[in-house]
Simulated assay, not measured.
Amino acid sequence: MDPGASERELLARFRDLDPDAWETVYRRSYPRLRDFARRRLPAGMDADDAVSECLARAVHRVADLTDRGLRVEAWLFGILRLVVLEHQRSAGRHRREHPATAEASAHPAEHGPLTELLERELQGSVREAFSRLRPDDQEILWLRLVADLSAAEVGSVIGRAEGAVRQAQSRALERLRHQLKEVHP
């Protein structure tokens, strides 16, 4: 696909199931989709599987995709968000029905050098402070700052107005600053 193609052209070609458009969207969004799923899924669930499920649903629902001036990724994050929520609900039911096996899977294996890097003092403090935030604050910050979606795109994903997303982001950042001061004085 031509790197200079506009978002609208990409959207139209994506909606027409153009393989080049799908590959372009896949290459630029997969790492962020996987990271979002990895951070939001319960322990023991595979982020790659969740993203694959998201993309499979996207193929089946591509006719629902409308041009609202947003990137295709915003639509994919909306689908992935639903997939993650379904997995969270399923894991919750499993924990209630099988408490002994849920406890054993709550502590995944370490991941070598990456874990060592993340355990550095400041990074660990930021992660701790972030984990203390409410799930909706985490979701807003993740979608805005890590997934790099615009306020309008996040609004379309979570069903809020653009201004409400900006306000929620500002409040979430303030709460994160407060938590960081508690974790890393």
Rank of each mutant, 00 (worst) to 15 (best):
P135V: 03
L122M: 05
Y30F: 13
A102C: 06
E162I: 05
Q88L: 00
E97H: 13
L114Y: 12
G4A: 03
A102M: 04
R95P: 02
R61L: 03
R61C: 09
C54R: 07
L65C: 04
A129M: 12
A43P: 10
V183A: 02
P135Q: 01
G163C: 03
A104P: 02
L173R: 10
S90D: 14
P19K: 03
R28D: 03
V62W: 06
L10C: 08
L17N: 09
R171T: 03
V126K: 12
R40L: 10
S170V: 04
A5S: 12
H60I: 06
H87D: 08
R39C: 08
R8I: 05
R120M: 09
G124I: 06
E9G: 00
M45T: 12
E7I: 00
G69F: 14
Q123F: 15
L11S: 07
A74G: 04
L70A: 07
R127P: 00
H107Y: 14
R171A: 00
R95A: 10
L149K: 05
P113V: 09
Q138R: 15
E174D: 09
R160A: 12
V25Q: 08
T66G: 09
R166K: 11
R40V: 10
R27I: 03
I140F: 07
L82S: 09
S105M: 11
A152R: 08
S156V: 11
L70M: 01
R71Y: 07
V183K: 04
M1S: 00
A56Q: 14
S156I: 05
E110T: 11
V25D: 02
R89Y: 06
H107S: 12
E103M: 07
E162Y: 06
S125C: 15
P19G: 00
G4N: 11
E53F: 01
H178L: 11
S105H: 09
A58E: 08
R68T: 05
S170E: 12
R81A: 01
S105Y: 06
A161I: 04
D35M: 14
R166M: 06
V83I: 00
R8W: 11
E162Q: 15
P3S: 02
Q179N: 15
S150Y: 07
E162S: 08
A58Y: 09
V154P: 05
E97D: 13
I140K: 02
L133E: 06
G78C: 08
R93Q: 13
A100V: 10
S29Y: 01
R68F: 05
R27L: 04
A161R: 15
L11M: 08
V157K: 07
L41C: 09
R144E: 12
R95N: 04
D18F: 00
G69W: 14
H111V: 01
A50S: 02
I140R: 06
R57W: 11
S6Y: 11
S125H: 15
I140H: 01
A164M: 10
L55G: 02
L70T: 05
V51R: 09
E119D: 10
V157W: 06
L149F: 10
L133I: 01
A43E: 14
M45C: 13
W75M: 09
D18G: 04
R38P: 00
R127E: 12
Y26S: 12
W75F: 11
W75G: 03
A100R: 08
H94Y: 14
H87V: 10
Y26H: 10
R144P: 01
D48V: 11
